[in-house]
Amino acid sequence: MSCMKTAENVCSTGIRIKDKKLTWKRSWQKYKYLYFLILPGLVYLIIFRYIPMYGLAIAFQDFTVFGGVFGSPFAGLKNFKTLMSNTLFWQAFVNTIRISGLKLIFAFPAPIVFALLLNEIFHPKYRRVVQTISYLPHFVSWVVLAGLLDVFINSSNGVLIMLLKSLKFNPPNIMTSNTWFVPMLIVTDIYKNVGYSSIVYLAAISSIDLGLYESAVIDGASRFRQVWHITIPSMLPIICILLIFNLGNILDGGFSQIFVLYNSLVYRTADIIDTYVYRVGIVSSDYSIGAAAQFFKSLIGMFLIIGANYTVRLFDQKGLW
């Protein structure tokens, strides 16, 4: 995204237009067909991204289906007041942050550790096979993983549960337990994404100059020291960028994962903003309240990502922009 500032300088067919100022007219003459190429994508974004953004205006209306986005009466902050006084919304809000926070603590470093450890495997073939197989869960739907999970931890005949029972343990029913459901979410999230997310870290590692290791070895650095002083610092820029993304998504919590796994017994710990929006906004057709919750979420998310980017740049790392 750094090009946003320097774009005008990196002209492709530079020399000729460099000294002339690029006016709309000249740009149109030169790039007419490019504008045609851009048009469909732009129209798509306007219809399917920007119109829904505008549609959030119903959060400030007493929306009725007949009135539509344009004809419904303005209601000010009424919907937000209703929302703020709703304990279920705050429960979802807190749950979202708790789940995302735990994912940030456990699931975010997991692929980094995975990449570091995998890099210590000396047989390229073994590494290759492990890597390829580890992508598998990422390409599989949460629905399928939920099905597999059921085969293993189903309280009546799950394989793992039977095993624990035969060892005289008394395993809880994870899917309905408010204590165990969230840890299960974290574990399954790691399971699904650890291999796939490690790709970028492994790429970062493989682009490190091997000379650095050689000189470290000559200076007597142990393997651990090499990792600590060379590998990890080299990965830092990409870690920062992904961290910004993750912080920006902290109000997401993982909708498609939770929606397929949760049930009314674990709403207390696992209901997140998105699932709340779905139940209120779509299922109960409380469009305005749902939109208010969504607006609240999107707004905070935007400030989080801007704030995170700002913080990262304070520490002299390259941010998203």
């Binding site: 995204m1 090009c3 946003m4 774009a7 851009i38 732009l42 974004l45 219809i47 399917f48 991204r49 920007y50 119109i51 829904p52 953004m53 505008y54 549609g55 959030l56 119903i58 986005v69 920006g248 998105d274 929006v277 779905y278 906004g281 779509i282 469009y287 749902g290 939109a291 969504q294 979420k297 999107s298 707004l299 998310g301 935007m302 990502i305 801007i306 922009w321």
Partner: peptide
Amino acid sequence: FLVFIIFFTMLFNGGMVPTWLL
């Protein structure tokens, strides 16, 4: 301007309810 228009959709989105209405 175009880059910003595209980038902004990463920062902010209308979400489920307005998209459903659309």
